[in-house]
């Protein structure tokens, strides 16, 4: 790495241009740690999973080659489609408000305030708490007989709701849980990006008399576009792999099926159920690869939507 010295060549336009030899070497050297480690600990499990998905593979017993049989079976599997609908539903219900609020929150946190550290760290508190504790807390909050939520609703005349029982209520409760945990996280990522936006921009805009909303639209959003794209992508990936929150929400027996009629079973829960309750390692691996494809599709759709957004702005 140390041998790579800066090239004397001009560094004008970057797009498409080939780097000098020094740049090439440094480039590969800088990215090599990631790829080396990933090759060992990431790629092997990935390829192995694909290999398994081509088999009828009992986790503890026999295995036989079925080619793409698992994939065709999965496409006709109602429970898979049900899990897909749940996953996407909860994803939209949680991610959209989460990112919008996070962006606004970042903007607020970026102002000159007293005790900034306190405010900025405050938003991350839900994330500091281990997921197991969050699970216990939320199950208690949403409990039918003694939960805080039903108790509060009771004061305005709402009968106790069994939150796990209905599709709408379980989605709502899980989305609340996800948003609670991840809004501050995203706000902090946005904040880090915001700090790179020269303060003079805002000051100039203020002198021009631009309102905070207008500043937000015309400075913050355009300047943060790469970070917004990034946060959306990460939220997409996290949202489609949603697992722990709905699992913990369904405390007690059969937690993995996500409710009596699978009303809030996500894709990862279905994968887990197939692998460890049903012992169908091959089929579960197929679900994993289909999830991979789903994430890919949703990510591309996201990218297209965000591109249009730029066109409007």
């Amino acid at each position: 790495m140390t041998t790579a010295t800066a090239p004397p060549a001009r560094r004008g336009s970057r797009a498409g241009a080939r780097g000098t030899r020094g740049e090439q070497v440094a480039g590969y050297a800088f990215i090599s740690p990631f790829f080396l480690v990933f090759a060992v600990f990431g790629l092997f499990p990935l390829l192995f999973t694909f290999w398994v998905s081509l088999h009828d593979w009992d986790l503890l017993g026999t295995r036989s080659w079925v080619g793409l049989g698992n994939y065709t079976a999965l496409l006709e599997d109602e429970d898979f489609w049900n899990a897909l609908v749940n996953t996407l539903g909860i994803f939209v219900l949680s991610t959209v408000p989460q990112l919008l609020v996070a962006l606004a929150l970042a903007q607020l946190l970026n102002q000159r305030l007293r005790a900034r550290t306190l405010w900025r760290m405050g938003v991350l508190l839900p994330n500091i708490t281990s997921i197991a504790a969050v699970g216990i807390i939320f199950t208690l909050l949403f409990a039918r007989d003694f939960g805080l939520v039903n108790w509060l609703l009771g004061h305005v005349g709402v009968d106790p709701i069994t939150w796990q029982e209905h599709r709408w209520s379980s989605w709502l409760a899980i989305s609340t849980m996800v948003d609670w945990r991840w809004t501050g996280y995203n706000a902090l990522i946005f904040l880090a990006a915001l700090q790179a936006v020269p303060r003079e921009l805002y000051e100039a805009a203020q002198i021009d008399g631009a309102s905070p909303v207008s500043q937000f639209r015309h400075i913050t959003v355009p300047m943060l576009r790469p970070t917004i794209v990034f946060a959306t992508l990460v939220a997409t990936i996290g949202g489609i792999q949603l697992f722990t929150e709905p699992l913990l929400f369904n405390s007690g027996a059969n937690a993995i099926t996500g409710g009596t009629t699978r009303q809030f079973q996500t894709l990862t829960m279905y994968l887990y159920e197939q692998a460890f309750t049903g012992q169908e390692f091959g089929y579960a691996s197929t679900v994993a690869w289909m999830m991979f494809l789903v994430i890919l599709v949703v990510a591309v759709v996201n990218a297209l939507l965000l591109r249009r957004l730029r066109g409007v702005a």
Binding site: G42, L271, A299
Partner: peptide
């Protein structure tokens, strides 16, 4: 980043 982690546990 898009690889679901839960199933990778066994190969890992």
């Amino acid at each position: 980043m898009m690889v679901p982690v839960q199933l990778g546990l066994i190969p890992l």
